[in-house]
Design a protein around this nucleic acid. Structure first.
Lengths: 205, 205, 205, 205
DNA sequence: CATGAATGAGTCTTCATTCAT
DNA sequence: AATGAATGAAGACTCATTCAT
């Protein structure tokens, strides 16, 4: 948590520090970004940095949490009202929404990527925690789908959630980060969902 | 690539360096393992290290490539003769084989995990290259499955390969690393394959 | 010397600053206590500190001098009227009085201890000065004892004063600081005084 | 403990580091002497320092222990053979011997002084330990004196030892450090011993 | 080739004090 | 006078790599 001193800063100074730090961390990676890099780029004295944040991780987790909140505010409404449709059928729309968010907050979004690129233990713990939270949401929504008769009764919801999430992290995140187009990403998603919905096995084989 | 000097070393000295280094890197992580740690644990002079390897990364990539080769030698036969069965049906057996290998060469196996824990650019490139190689194998085998009429004709083989691979890396690797039992891992696999084979959508919904 | 600004402060604010600072310095040691610690604990703005005191040492020396004065007010009456008794015989009573004072003003008392725990040159000078002052008192009183025929005529008063003082600082201070009981401290004193009064050499040896 | 690397150094390089460091610490005080000061004065790279010593304290304790050993080699013979005389009568000779040693190894000797000038906890522990060791020697020798009938049977040996030691540390050390002459120091000692041997109380008073 | 000492840029962090409002 | 942000020199320590023997 940043100190009160940081929160007291004039808004544009605060914003500047946030943006510059985000850009730096995205460019160099969390591990490789040093406090020196940050203070130089932000043009603030080294001492000030430590008057704002406990340390590098404090800054990082602050930035990330902001992101999370922004993202949640953006996406939550979708999750909360499926309007009688199946989550599995709407999945593509969720991806689309994430994408919209990512397009608008690219820097902030990429930051989440750093969670997968570091060896820092504290950061790793944080990532694990966030993943568990997301998986829970998936599990809930999929359970609803089963209850509503959209999915086969015997489906293992936990495994399905993990499958969706794994693809999300490994392929979609990656594609976004690498600059894939909306079309590419949505096609990939549709295709994947199709496989999962209808299966790949030829009948009678 | 290690220098000729390294290759000329007596076999048991070479093996010792490899084993000790692997153990260290697995325990501490690639980034956190210092050359000091290595030379101390291996009981070789600091200077020798740089006469054997260009730098820390050179050692790492050498170890990893050895691992790859060992693993390939172990697993390749399976891929090459499906004996008239579908890859998708045998997938569980491949996982089982991987598991057998991992159990027997745990240290060597875990090393691959480091690929996902490091921000070092060269390491990342390496990982990407390895992933592409594995994906290619999957694609080939799945294409065969389609040609042999085991899978629906319209299946997007590329996406399917990615889906399998994502789950493999994100869930299975993780479970192995965390010490899951064979049973747990195979059950998870079976469950996932079932979803993919038969789909999750309730008919008529 | 504190600034006029400090003296103008409302009495309870002044007292609060003094007490909190003393507690901190006693707990952490003068060197280890930072101005940050002080302003945080006192709940005063950082800038105010420097409007009250020139610097950290200025505060410390002010606190110490206050202590000295309080202690003197407390103990002086004893020194000034020996009521016809020898100082050497009353020494135990002085220690008792010091002890009483220390018990009642432990925080203030301990502060003096910091004088012996710091390498700061100014602090050292201060300590030396205070010691010289105390030694002077001892010398005066012992000289009186000689004049009054309580002590042998040939006794080197200067050395005797130093001997008493050395023991006082090295053993008694220490014991008080470490939480020795009154009994322990007075016994130690009596024993020491006995040695000095009657000597240790066996007659005829 | 210095590392093997340090011990492997050419003798004159080792000696140089020791001497320069001792001088520095004596001049600036242990607390104020920084590793930077040391490497600059010794003209060795910063990294080398940490290849020789764990940290500043490691160096200091090494220097001090060397000193201790040298001093012990020098003084021990005296303690071990009192040749039928009383320790209390020979005390002056011990001080003389210490003085001789100090004169010849002034730098090394002064170093011991730093023990009393620092707030460093580790150093303080060390000092306490050393003091206890010295006190033990005093107690032993004085106990012998009592047993041999040189001192009154009822003398509290512990208190006497502490008295001698306190004076030693507080007055003699100080005088040596401040550059007192042999004569001054020995006179002071004789005078103090006289007081302790024969007491100061006028008979019949 | 083996050995292990040499190197110094770079890391995080602290803190007394000054400055601007 | 009160406030609290600004400042940057300085501290301890690390480590990959090179050098000299």
């Amino acid at each position: 948590m940043p100190t009160q001193t940081f929160y007291n800063l004039p808004k544009n100074k605060k914003k500047n520090i946030e943006n510059v730090a985000i850009k730096l961390i995205n460019d160099l990676g969390y591990d490789k970004t040093t406090v020196s890099d940050i203070v130089k780029a932000c043009q603030i004295p080294r001492g000030s940095f430590y008057q704002y944040f406990d340390n590098k991780f404090d800054l990082f987790s602050y930035l990330l949490e902001s992101k999370q909140q922004e993202e949640m505010t953006f996406i939550k409404p979708l999750y909360e009202d499926l309007a009688g449709e199946a989550f599995i059928d709407l999945y593509k729309d969720f991806v689309q929404a994430s994408l919209d968010f990512a397009r608008q907050h690219l820097d902030v979004y990429q930051l989440g990527f750093q969670l997968y690129q570091t060896h820092d233990e504290t950061v790793n713990d944080m990532r694990q925690h966030m993943e568990e939270k997301k998986l829970d949401i998936y599990r809930d929504l999929l359970t609803q789908d089963v209850e509503n008769g959209y999915l086969k009764a015997g489906v293992n919801v936990d495994v399905l959630a993990k499958l969706l999430y794994a693809f999300n992290v490994k392929e979609l995140y990656h594609l976004i980060y690498e600059g894939g187009t909306d079309r590419e990403i949505l096609d990939l998603t549709t295709c994947m969902i199709d496989i999962i919905k209808y299966g790949v096995k030829k009948e009678g084989s």
